[in-house]
């Protein structure tokens, strides 16, 4: 049992490979989370435009990418784009797929947050001469983000977990590296290492999320 799953020699041998994967997972998260948030912010702000010319395409976009499995999207981009003359590589494909997929999720969360801010806030801001964008940036968004912080964090957790999909298109992130190490050593210990590392980086976020959710519940009561 110890020899198969917690083999000390293999832990030592595989550590550099697995840590290189951890580095890439963190790098990937640091790219796809802000990218998704930025895309979501644009979608959420477009959602306040009343014109049907914006509204309908926006709804179709968000619905499509929320209904489309991110793994399928990723494989489609990776396998399909070269035929369109675009050789982007795994890393860029993951970034694009996540931008499309998680951007739509972040967008819906932020839209709900913006809707939760009373309209009187915007009116007060506009009455003092702030522009619509200034009112959004200084008054609405800070309150909106605070109101949906647990949902934003929860989605971010999902995004970090989903970076393991990158292994499918040979992005050397944590899971991919662990599998490499496993196939070299003929031992599942590296996979266990990856699992433990995922847990260690995500667990503090999960704790934080519970605390935020409890506080939100208390605030509501």
């Amino acid at each position: 049992m110890i020899q198969s799953f917690f083999n000390p020699e293999i832990i030592v041998a595989a550590m550099p490979i697995v840590l290189a994967g951890l580095f890439n997972t963190i790098l990937l998260s640091l790219i796809v989370v802000p990218l998704g948030l930025a895309g979501g912010l644009v979608l959420a702000m477009l959602a306040s435009v009343k014109s049907p010319l914006v509204r309908w395409p926006l709804m179709a976009w968000v619905d499509f990418f929320r209904a489309f499995p991110p793994l399928v999207l990723l494989v489609l981009l990776f396998a399909g784009l070269p035929f369109a003359g675009l050789e982007l590589g795994g890393f860029a494909c993951v970034a694009i797929a996540f931008f499309l997929n998680t951007g739509s999720y972040y967008g819906e969360i932020l839209r709900a947050g913006i809707d939760s801010v009373p309209h009187g806030q915007v009116e007060a801001a506009r009455s003092t001469g702030l522009s619509g964008l200034q009112a959004m940036g200084y008054i609405v968004l800070p309150q909106a983000v605070r109101n949906v912080l647990p949902d934003l964090l929860s989605n971010t957790l999902e995004v970090v977990k989903l970076t393991s999909l990158g292994s499918v298109v040979a992005v050397p992130e944590l899971l991919y590296q662990a599998r490499q190490a496993q196939s070299i050593t003929y031992n599942p210990t590296p996979i266990v290492m990856a699992a433990v590392i995922y847990f260690l980086i995500l667990w503090p976020l999960v704790r934080l999320l519970s605390r935020l959710e409890n506080r939100a519940l208390a605030g509501r009561g």
Partner: peptide, 28 residues
């Protein structure tokens, strides 16, 4: 936006910005 500086408005429900201090509300 420039013109509205000349016209102050006070609302029934105050509409103060809850995430800022009193001074922050006034100074923004």
């Amino acid at each position: 936006n420039h013109a509205r500086q000349r016209i102050g408005m006070v609302f029934q429900s105050f509409n103060l910005y809850p995430h800022m201090t009193a001074l922050g509300n006034v100074a923004l």
